[in-house]
Design a binder for these strands. Structure first.
Lengths: 346, 346
DNA sequence: TCCAGTTGAGTTACCCGTAACGTTACGCTA
DNA sequence: TAGCGTAACGTTACGGGTAACTCAACTGGA
């Protein structure tokens, strides 16, 4: 095996230059193709580059130019949630086509993890930062403000972003879902979610949801916020808890589709008929939902597009183009078949 | 908004030092906490650091020390496939706890994209590379060999890796599935998958699968390799195609669970009884499978653990600890209920 | 009082590119 | 053949840190 403790004789531009019998500068010009050299020289240099296996040192280049790198730091709470994986995919693909690299940070939904990650990634002189969520620690906010680089806050639409923001209005999304369920005739509504720092988009949705339900004449009888991850099994046992304590709930709104599927499984396992005995509504519209026999009532958000939009704003800002500060990516209610549909909306 | 064209007056170590009335070196020593200064000096320097909002420039530090950075490049084919998202999560979490940063590269399953990504990321002097798949372009392989940094190839177990390898033996995994299905009494087997460059792990699985089926007395009547992504809908229409041309197939093995769910949906939609009329077997054991009414017959691979293991090997190698070259992470057959079970294995 | 030993802090030489000039060589015109 | 313009290439000065070395001040013991 290699011995990594030895400093591996990396080939530098100087070595290429001296091998080709030209100056460092000439070699540099050839490599960057900015002209100022003869075709003969170009060939000679490129030949040596191939021969020696020279790889440019971008680190030195950035350092020399006193510029920012082509890195873009991207913080994402978790990848277990398919939704965030899609956002990240959208971001990285778009950034990649513009010659930028994603430096990933999984912040586990906590502002502390985000803060330490931010200070680390800033020390690498990134070109910009894309952050999920709008809740940052005070020190993080200050660092971001002082960083002097473009910053896109995604996910939760932020009317007063640090710099830019893309996402949806979670209050409105929650409101629409609440209104829809009330329109479908439900009156005793339940909620099952989890409590996380950055998951406050979910909290905002819940607020909108409650508002709509109340103004529609229903009531949110019980809200359950588990201290667990927002995945299938917590959805399962959360439903068990909720229904165990309140028997008259006729529909449950979940933090996301994964939890809703867990809840659906619990209900059908108990012999409850969905949606006749109990309605189930999720959030996020997982891709798998479209090939399951029972279409989950949910809220569709174009996650891939969201990621792409964030990357586009970043790139536009970096290239000096005018960019709006806030971009609403929109959402769409999926009526599905896990709630009764009395409205003819489907 | 900020004006990013202006060079933002980044605070440098020199500025901190002069503000504190000490030399650059002393300030550097304080920042790195390597001793050689009085408590009074330390306080003074740190006070100025806070005051000026100084953020270290790791780029310059790496450059000065002629060392590698704390970056680890991680190439992943796509994130739409939940499985890879889990692998990435495992990698990044583990790397993060050891002070490393993930530089992501989505290679779209092609060796060309991987090659360009490799050369880009190598120019940032990463500490190491974690690559998905073992198929690299010749130039990529050469770059990797010459890079002189630890390299972990994951996913497909590689007996002669460039440096290190973690994953499973896909031939064996395919073989086990084939043997199981034959044991369950199936004789006319079909396969639905996609064709991609790096997805050759799937090809290897298929080879093992065919081997087992044939030596077990069955036959793989039809193999379908779609030119599409390995997701739900291709699973759906691939199944339609497969069953349209061959009516006597009694079980279908899919490239992954997502496609298998698509297939399951097609079959139940056509009124076919699964598993009595036709068996369905997937691969990967998606998390959602455990909360759906019908458990998908599949192969469980500990994806998160795979990612963690890759990161662990990387870190061990970086810190000079002895590391094995190849690590088998194992897999486990999930009998499920989408194939007939005549063997009592469940 | 002197000197060795210890500790704190300053100096200098890079690291690898790039930018901004400076220089050379050559061809063209007058 | 002087004069000039320009393409081609060389030189030099950074940039923000680190490592290794040097120097200065203070300590304590003989």
């Amino acid at each position: 095996m290699h011995d990594f403790t030895n400093k591996n004789k990396k080939i530098s531009l100087t070595q290429v230059a001296s091998a080709a019998g030209v100056s460092k500068m000439t070699a540099s010009r050839v490599l960057r193709g900015e002209g100022g050299y003869s075709e003969k020289t170009r060939k000679l240099v490129m030949e040596k580059v191939d021969q020696l296996g020279y790889l440019p040192n971008r680190l030195a280049a950035v350092f020399a130019g006193d510029k920012t790198s082509t890195f873009v730091g991207v913080s994402i709470p978790e990848l277990g949630n398919e939704v965030f994986a899609q956002v990240l995919e959208g971001i990285d693909r778009k950034l990649g086509t513009f010659g930028h690299q994603t430096v990933l940070g999984l912040t586990q939904h906590t502002a502390e993890e985000e803060e330490t990650w931010i200070s680390t990634v800033l020390s690498w002189q990134p070109a910009g930062l894309i952050l999920t969520g709008r809740l940052h620690s005070p020190r993080a906010t200050e660092m971001l403000r002082n960083a002097g680089i473009p910053i896109v806050e995604i996910w939760d639409l932020n009317s007063s972003p640090i710099d830019m923001s893309v996402g949806i209005n979670h209050f409105d999304a929650g409101f629409d879902m609440g209104r829809y369920l009330v329109q479908c005739g439900y009156r005793n509504l339940g909620y099952v979610g989890t409590s996380h720092d950055i998951a406050n988009a979910a909290t905002t949705r819940l607020a909108g949801f409650c508002k709509a339900v109340e103004s529609g004449g229903g009531q949110v009888t019980k809200q359950l916020c588990l201290h667990d991850s927002a995945t299938y099994y917590p959805g399962f046992y959360g439903t068990e808890q909720l229904l165990g304590s309140s028997t008259d709930i006729d529909v449950i709104f979940y933090q996301n589709d994964a939890m809703a599927f867990g809840g659906l499984q619990f209900c059908t396992g108990k012999g409850l008929n969905v949606p006749d005995d109990i309605g189930i509504a999720g959030w996020g519209d997982l891709p798998i939902a479209s090939v399951l026999p029972k279409r989950m009532t949910s809220m569709h958000v174009p996650h891939l597009k969201l990621g792409q939009a964030a990357a586009e704003m970043m790139i536009a800002r970096l290239s000096g183009e005018p960019v709006g500060d806030v971009r609403d990516i929109g959402f769409k209610l999926i009526p599905g078949s896990t709630v009764r549909n009395l409205t003819g909306l489907a």
